[in-house]
């Protein structure tokens, strides 16, 4: 268990720095408490999963991390800076990347352009520079295109000149990850990345998530229903139920936790 009063850049037991720290996060909608006083840490280079039955508050929590909701109380610290009240685009600039449960690509852009749009905040080309076509801007654009192609290669896509929305489903998922990677995130939020995938595609995506950490040194926060994915790649798993954190630990620990089994058996869904 992490120390509840950890400092801004506190180290946990193993002496690893935390990328993200959430303290006492609460969100109420009217009288309904969706998330209740949740503490949560994501260490550097870790894959952390957030699971729980439907309506447990996972998505609300996720939306608070990415900035779509502002918590009623509590705070988020990303790499030492308080981001609780920051807007989504400011968080992205701070190094937070995300994908969406119901893929939200820029449908009428090509795959490369999607990645280039994701790179937006890491490019410097000014408007005047773009209009005049200064050497600096041209060079940056050329390098950006090369990097975009490299990123597409990394996720296993080739830069095809079709609209993103015409890509096969599995490729769209991969493209969304490539687009998120383009903004050089330190922490990547993946919202049910294997939803709607067949076992083969799921296995390939699981492998890709592993490589995000191994090859790019990213931390990943994963919301996932597919328990095999969660249990095979997570370093740590946090379980929410009715807005409360009921369990936290390694996949093995969580799997054996009585309260988790009860929470899952208590609802129709067993993952």
């Amino acid at each position: 268990m992490p120390e509840p009063n950890g400092g801004a850049r506190a180290a946990n037991g193993a002496g690893v720095t935390n990328i993200l720290e959430a303290r006492g996060i609460t969100k109420t909608f009217g009288g309904l408490v969706a998330v209740n006083s949740v503490d949560f840490d994501i260490p550097e280079r870790a894959i952390v999963s957030l699971i729980g039955p439907n309506g447990a508050g996972k998505t609300t929590f996720f939306n608070m991390v990415s900035g779509l909701y502002i918590p009623t109380s509590g705070r988020f610290v990303l790499t030492g800076r308080d981001i609780t009240r920051m807007k989504p685009h400011e968080r992205a600039q701070m190094g937070l990347g995300r994908t969406f449960q119901n893929i939200r690509l820029f449908g009428t852009m090509s795959a490369v352009d999607n990645v280039l749009a994701g790179m937006h905040v890491r490019l410097k080309g000014s408007i005047l520079g773009s209009i005049l076509g200064t050497p600096g801007v041209s060079r940056e654009e050329k390098e950006a295109r090369e990097r975009a192609h490299a990123l597409l290669g990394f996720v296993g896509l080739r830069g095809r000149q079709t609209f993103a929305k015409n890509l096969p489903y599995g490729d769209q998922r991969r493209l969304e990850i490539a687009r998120a990677l383009a903004s050089d995130p330190k922490l990547l939020l993946l919202d049910e990345p294997t939803a709607g995938m067949n076992p083969q595609e799921t296995a390939r995506l699981t492998e890709l998530i592993g490589r995000l950490r191994e090859e790019r040194g990213l931390s990943v926060l994963l919301i996932e229903h597919e328990m095999r994915v969660v249990m095979s790649i997570s370093d740590r798993v946090t379980v929410l139920d009715h807005g409360e954190k009921i369990s936290e630990g390694t996949p093995t620990e969580v799997r054996q936790d009585e309260r988790v089994i009860e929470a899952y058996l208590g609802t129709a869904r067993t993952g």
Partner: peptide
């Protein structure tokens, strides 16, 4: 590109760090 992305999906564009 930022214009197209904001036009197509403002939320996704913001998640990429583009200030709508």
């Amino acid at each position: 590109r930022a214009w197209v992305s904001v036009r197509e999906d403002e939320t996704a564009a913001a998640a990429m760090g583009i200030n709508p």
